[in-house]
Design a protein around this nucleic acid. Structure first.
Lengths: 231, 231
DNA sequence: AGCTTTCAAAGTGCATGCACTTTACGGGCC
DNA sequence: GGCCCGTAAAGTGCATGCACTTTGAAAGCT
């Protein structure tokens, strides 16, 4: 019946739109791990039929954000503690590799930009501006990803970061973490500016592992306090 | 019309079956990069309707094996030279990270198995058995992936390896490459057995970069000799 | 009661068909 | 001839509906 021209503006396909929205909701924790992704419900929500919803779910599961059980529906990916640890660890290795390459390959301009950004964040630390620092932190790591000049490595690190995002809510709540974070960044920047790849790799690995440990502890805490799932 | 019970055995879903088949065909070069993936054609080939084909294509493109242009069909992923270089480089970094962790974490049994496999390959080198060595090589690297004891890192390295597979056809054709490869492996095994993570990482990176360079050169050669695409 | 069996409701898997977009080809125009 | 436009064929995007599987709860059995 309702098969008329879809409003004239139709940037990208409907499915792409849905994928982006759902992926954002998962990454931002609006759809928590284990949440059921009902085809009919989502079709209603987006005002489309089940066909495009099914396609979107298929792709989300291919991306690792959702999990599909044949004939048994689709849920937001449930990550075990072991898997989460492995993901954080891989993140450290990936970022470390990026930093090593960035130290070797960043252009003079890129180095200047990284240093400038880093120095400018000092005031945020002093003011204890957690939200602003969090946003700076994203940019900082982003510059290093770009600095490695390897599109594939950048993609790997970005998708891994997305998958971990739902579990990173704790970030800078810990007292004194802001200052420590900045100091760790300082070691990274120094190494990169010196062009010392190995030092940059080591400093970055240590930094990311520290952050990961905090996040993992927070998640583990949250999990044991609320039993959730399988009642 | 034809909506009857699908033959009793139906391991996994039809879509999964198709994805596996198509992914294999792409990875093994049966479907070359740029090949058009026509929905109706594939539907015919697999004896299904277009709906499951569309789902399979969506997932293949989410996996990076195919590329979908809205309203313009789907083709086997076309990898630019730059992208290929980046992928080979990332492969080196990933394997290097695996090797570092493997050196630190492999169990005594795993170390023994790796050494045994490596030693047993010496005769293959002596006999110049390219195919057998190629299969050994797969196992060898596989043991290192497992040895890092990180499921996510293993997944990243495996999917990257799959994506690169179509471009690795050259492998051991080069004269003397067998012996060189074995010697490089020897350095890796020695470092891992010693538990020296950094040495293992460096040796592995060097080894993978060497192999990558050979493959990249081969691809680049093939590309410039046959113009292909956009006639 | 505790266990199995049955069966209806809910929900997934796929076929089909229509609407829309792209593409390619042939005729009108300069 | 080269360029533009219109138009038909091919092909993609989504809605709908039927078949099949799962699930859960009530009925039957020991």
């Amino acid at each position: 019946m309702m098969q008329q021209k879809r409003a004239l503006l139709r940037a990208g396909t409907t499915v792409d739109e849905m994928i982006r929205t759902l992926a954002d909701d998962i990454v931002n924790g609006i759809l928590p791990p284990g949440e059921k992704l009902d085809e009919l419900g989502l079709a209603d929500r987006f005002g489309v039929s089940r066909t495009p919803v099914r396609e979107a779910l298929g792709q989300l599961s291919a991306m690792g954000l959702a999990e599909r059980r044949p004939n048994r529906g689709c849920v937001v990916a449930i990550i075990t503690d072991q898997r989460l640890t492995d993901m954080f660890e891989a993140m450290a290795e990936l970022e470390s590799a990026c930093a090593r390459l960035a130290a070797l390959r960043m252009s003079a301009g890129e180095r200047r930009a990284l240093d400038a950004l880093h120095q400018s964040a000092a005031t945020l630390v002093h003011d204890g501006a957690q939200d602003a620092y969090s946003s700076f932190n994203l940019q900082f790591h982003g510059l290093i990803y770009e600095g490695c000049h390897s599109s594939y490595l950048r993609d790997l690190v970005s998708t891994t970061r997305s998958r971990l995002a739902p579990f990173r809510r704790a970030q800078f709540r810990m007292l004194g973490r802001l200052r420590k974070s900045w100091e760790e960044h300082d070691a990274i920047v120094t190494a990169i500016l010196r062009g010392d790849g190995e030092a940059a790799a080591i400093a970055t690995r240590a930094h990311v592992i520290t952050v990961s440990a905090a996040s993992a502890a927070f998640v583990s805490d949250t999990r044991t306090s609320l039993p959730q799932e399988t009642p």
